[in-house]
């Protein structure tokens, strides 16, 4: 038992630093996923067939290509093509855009849960189609899909572990745990603390989403 805690205290700076990197990676990716996911969902329900198709192409592309492949393409591929993209930008971009596809799909289902009558009520009050979407439909869609958004977010936090150990080599929690492991050969201990770190983030996200749900979920 002593060895377990020794690994934590002896390598605290690395592990804590890795946790901080993972937090920033996850936070930035989440912001991208939410913004892009909302825009793509808006495309998919737009009153134009072409915009709907554009949204569909986005979802199918990013949902059907493995995250690891996206990371390779966005980093190695873009660099070879002469785009000087940083490992941070490639990591956040890949994870964010990949997750956005799932956010868009969940939001779209939330939009369909908003009744036609809500849209008609807003239109009849003089709101434009865009304002109706923004003020009435999307806020209700978000409130309807808080639980599935929590699942997507937790999946994203766990998916972030790929970024550090891929060729992007971001010094995130898992990457730092591997460094500790290879230096100390205390494999179980090092990865145990990595697991605890991920659990801390996912558990916090779960609690945050539960609060959101309690506060905002729609009673119908």
């Amino acid at each position: 038992m002593g060895a377990l805690f020794d690994v934590l205290t002896d390598n605290f700076d690395e592990l804590a630093g890795g946790l901080w990197v993972t937090l920033r990676l996850v936070g930035a990716s989440f912001a991208i996923a939410l913004v892009v996911g909302t825009l793509v969902a808006a495309l998919r329900i737009a009153p134009s067939k072409w915009l709907q198709r554009l949204g569909g192409v986005y979802v199918e592309t990013f949902r059907n290509v493995p995250l690891l492949v996206l990371l390779f393409i966005s980093f190695a591929g873009l660099r070879r093509a002469g785009v000087p993209i940083s490992n941070w930008a490639a990591g956040i971009g890949s994870l964010g855009l990949y997750t956005a596809a799932y956010v868009a799909e969940v939001l779209r289902s939330g939009v369909f849960a908003v009744s036609r009558g809500q849209i008609e009520a807003a239109l009849s009050l003089g709101f434009s189609y865009g304002a109706t979407l923004r003020r009435i439909v999307l806020p209700q869609a978000f409130r309807t899909v808080i639980a599935p958004l929590a699942s997507i977010t937790i999946a994203m936090i766990k998916n972030s572990a790929i970024v550090g150990v891929s060729l992007l080599a971001l010094p995130d929690l898992l990457k730092e745990a591997r460094i500790v492991q290879s230096r100390t050969f205390q494999t179980d201990e090092a990865f145990f603390w990595a697991a605890v770190g991920y659990l801390l983030i996912t558990a916090s996200a779960t609690i945050a989403f539960r609060r959101l749900e309690r506060r905002f979920a729609i009673r119908r």
């Binding site: 009744s115 008609e120 009520a121 239109l123 009849s124 009050l125 003089g126 009435i136 806020p139 409130r143």
Partner: peptide, 18 residues
């Protein structure tokens, strides 16, 4: 703007639940 001058009341009320 024209709809803003015409009030409408629906069978299913359609109040905004949020």
């Amino acid at each position: 703007p024209m709809r803003a001058e015409i009030g409408m009341v629906f069978q299913q009320f359609n109040l905004f639940p949020h």
